[in-house]
Design a protein around this nucleic acid. Sequence first.
DNA 1: TGAAGATTATGAATTTGTCTCACGAACCGG
DNA 2: CCGGTTCGTGAGACAAATTCATAATCTTCA
Lengths: 301, 301
Amino acid sequence: MHLEFRHLRTIKAIHEAGGLARAADLMNITQSALSHQVKGLEDQAGVELFVRRTKPLRLSAAGMRLLRLAEKVLPEIEALEDDFRNLQSGKAGRLHIAIECHACFEWLFPVLESFRKAWPDVDVDIRPGLAFDALPALKREEVDLVVSSDPEELDAVTFSPLFNYEPVFVASAQNPLAAKDFVVAEDFRDQMLITYPVDRARLDVFSQLLTPAKVEPRGVRQVELTAVILLLVASNRGVAVLPDWVVREVKYHSDYVTRPLTETGLTRTLYAATRDEDTTKPFMAHLLRLAKTIPVKLQRS
Amino acid sequence: MHLEFRHLRTIKAIHEAGGLARAADLMNITQSALSHQVKGLEDQAGVELFVRRTKPLRLSAAGMRLLRLAEKVLPEIEALEDDFRNLQSGKAGRLHIAIECHACFEWLFPVLESFRKAWPDVDVDIRPGLAFDALPALKREEVDLVVSSDPEELDAVTFSPLFNYEPVFVASAQNPLAAKDFVVAEDFRDQMLITYPVDRARLDVFSQLLTPAKVEPRGVRQVELTAVILLLVASNRGVAVLPDWVVREVKYHSDYVTRPLTETGLTRTLYAATRDEDTTKPFMAHLLRLAKTIPVKLQRS
DNA sequence: TGAAGATTATGAATTTGTCTCACGAACCGG
DNA sequence: CCGGTTCGTGAGACAAATTCATAATCTTCA
C-alpha cells in the first residue's frame, strides 16, 4: 500500500467540501485528478473509501478511519513546517553547550535562565561527558558552543572572550600557608591538592603553575562537587585552587582563607567557542552578550 | 514544502543505518536516489537536515526534529494498514444497527454482548433516531443492519427472519377485559391505549388489528420506557400491546394479565435487513445466527 | 416523467517527478 | 599517498500524477 500525504489531504478536503468536485476546487486541482487519485488509493488499499451509492460522494467506514488518521497527522506536519520556518528565521535553533571548565555551572545557569526567557524556541542543553574532544565535537555539530579558557587557532571556529577571572588558592585558616600573603608553586610540594576530576591540562593550577614549575604536590584528590571541595578544605584535609567567582559565591563558609597565586596573582580569560556560521545568529549573539555581563554582575553582588 | 511519507522513511532509514549508502541498501534503492531525495527535501524545507562535515552522514538538529515526526507518524500508518487488512479479511468492520421496533433493546443487548466478545474489532453501535427511513439509510450505508417486522422486496437488500413473537394484550387485573379469554379490535374502543412514541404503522396493535378493523381507541398515550408502560397498565391507567418476550422479561409484576389478540393469537416475525454484500460477511453471519438463537433462549429461561 | 444541472468516471495525452546509471569529488585509515 | 568508502551530480529512462475531453450517472424541479 502506497499511502501518501497527498491522499490524506485529499480525504480531508473531500470530507470538508462534501464532494469530489468542490474538493478539487479547494485543492486547485482537476476533479479528474481527484477521481483518479481516489481510485488508485482504493485499489491499493483494497478497501472502499467512499459510498458511491449516493451522488455527492461520502466517506465510508474505512474512509472515516483514514480521515481520523489525516486529522491526527496533518497538524503534526504543519507544526513541523512551523518549526522549520522558525529555524530559518533564526527564532529557533539548537544551543548545546559543552563546558571544559568544571566550575562554570555556577555562572552558566543564571545566564541560561535569562536566555531561555528571551528565546523559548531554542533548544538549550548542557552536554556533560565531553570535557575532552569538545572542540572536535563542536566542528561535528554535536555541540554548538564550547566554554574554554584555552583558545586555539581553528578554522571556522571563533573564540569570543567572555570575562576574566583569577584562579585563587584556598586553604583552611589552620593551614600554615594561610600565614602567607600569596602562594607559589613550591608551596604545593607538601600539600594534598583537591581538584575536579578532569585532565590536568584543564586545571589552571597545573597548566599555569605546577606543570611549568615541575612541582608535584604531595597528593591529588579528585572531588566532583564544589561544595564538597570547600568542605574538605575548610576541615584542612587539603588545599584547592578555584576560580575567584566560585569562592565568592559560597563565601559564607568562613573556615578557609583565599590567597593569590604568585605575588601578582594570575589572570585568565574564559572564552566561548562557536562555529563561524552560528556566531552571527541572533540568539547566539544574545547568549554571548549575556555570558559577558551576567557573571560580572554576579561577582559584584 | 512537499513532505511525503517517503521522506520520513528515508530519514528513519538513514538514521538507523548510520549513513546514506547503508540506508539505500536497506530500502532497496540506489544511493544516488537517496542523495537526490535528501537534497530535494532540504531545498524545499530550506533547512539543513544533515551534518555534511562528517563523512558518514549524520542528522542535524533539524533532522532530529524530522526524525521525531517520522517516529510518531510511521507507526500510525502501520496501524492503519493493519486495520485495513482486518477490514479486507473480514475480521473488522462496522455494524451500526437501526431498530424500528422500539422494544428490541431487550433482546438485542445480550446478543451484542455476546457478539462483541467474538469480534472485538467490529465497531458495533445502535443508531437511534431513524425509526423512519431506516431502509434508505441502510442503502446509503449510514447503517448496516435494520431490525424490522415489515419485510419489503428491495434491491440489494436481504431480509433474514430472526424469530417469531406474539403481540399480546396487557391489562390490569381490575380491567373488565381481564375477564375475557382473548381480546379483539372492538374491545379497544373504550380503552386508553399506551404505546411507544413511534408511528402507528410501526405498532403491531395498529397495523395488525385496529387499522384493518377501523377501530380507534378512546385515547392513545405515548410512553418511552417499557417499565413505565407496565407500571401504568398495572395501575389500570390504560392497556397496552407488547411483544410476548417483553412481558415475560418483567413478569415479576403480577398486577397485570396478558391475553392473546384474537382467538388464535397473532404471530409476527422479526427480520434483520442487511445489504447483500454484507450478508455473507463472516461477522454478519455470526450476528444473524446469534440473533436467531439468543432471544429464543431468553424467552425460555 | 423528462430535461437541465450537477457530480463522478474514464481513457489518452501530457507533464511532472523519481529512480538508475555512470562518474566525479571528498574523506578515512593504514 | 593510495585503495576503499561515502556522498554529490547530471543525463536519460521510467513511472506516476495531472489535465483535457467526454461519457456515464445521479439529482432536482417543473
